[in-house]
Design a protein around this nucleic acid. Sequence first.
DNA 1: AATATTCATCGTATATTTACGATATACGTG
DNA 2: CACGTATATCGTAAATATACGATGAATATT
Lengths: 106, 106
Amino acid sequence: MKKETDVYSDDEVKLARFAKALSHPARIQIMKLLASQNSCFCGNIAGYLPLSQSTVSQHLKELKDAGLIIANVKQPKIYYCICKENWDMAKKFLDALFEKKACEIC
Amino acid sequence: MKKETDVYSDDEVKLARFAKALSHPARIQIMKLLASQNSCFCGNIAGYLPLSQSTVSQHLKELKDAGLIIANVKQPKIYYCICKENWDMAKKFLDALFEKKACEIC
DNA sequence: AATATTCATCGTATATTTACGATATACGTG
DNA sequence: CACGTATATCGTAAATATACGATGAATATT
C-alpha cells in the first residue's frame, strides 16, 4: 500500500491527526478541562471522567503524541497543558478548511 | 459500560463525531474537493484519491453518517455536497473549543 | 528502609476502522 | 431486453482503538 506521504499533503495528514486526537468525547473533555484552568491543570483528570486512571493515561498519551498537549514533570506530579504552538496550528488548518464555502445548491 | 449520553454532553459527543469524520486524510481531501467546487461535486471522487471506488464509497458514507455531507440522487449519478447546517455547527463547536486559552505557563 | 503517591505501561479482550475485490442495485441507452 | 454506468454493499483480512486491572517506576514522606 502507498505510504500516506506519497499521496496526501503534509498539512492534510497533520490536520487528520489533530482531528483524530479530538475524535473521542473523553479527549474533548480533557482538552476543555486543560483549557479551563488558568494555570496548568495537574493530575487527577481521571476524577473528572468516567474512566479508569489507566484509560485516562492512554488518552493523555494520544493527545501528547498528536502534539496537542505537553507533559510537564514536577515530581511526583505531572502537569499537562495545551501546546499553544500546535493548538494554534490546528486552529489555523481547521479555519482554512472551514473557510471554504459549502455548496449552496443542495 | 456506561452509555456516552450518561457521561458526555451532547455537544461533546457531536464534536467528537465531527472530528472523527475528519480524522482521516482521505476524508479531509474529500471535504476539500467538495468545498472547492462551486457547484455540487459529482461522482468520480475516487479518481482524485489513491483509493478504490468501494473504499471511497465507505469514506463518503462515514462523512454522510456524521452529517457533514448530503447525497443528492440525480440518476444515474449521485451528487455529494457539504451539509451547510452541520458544517456550520462543527465550525461553531470547534471555534468554541479553540477560543479557550492555552496555558501560558508551560 | 518502608510506605504512599502519582503516573505510565503491560497484558488482554473486544470493537471499530481501513482497505480491497466481488457482487448487487438502479437506471439509462442502444 | 441486454448492456454500460454509477454507486452501494458484502465478505474478509489486517490494523488500530478502547477499556480495564495489574504491575512497574520514580519520588516524597514517615
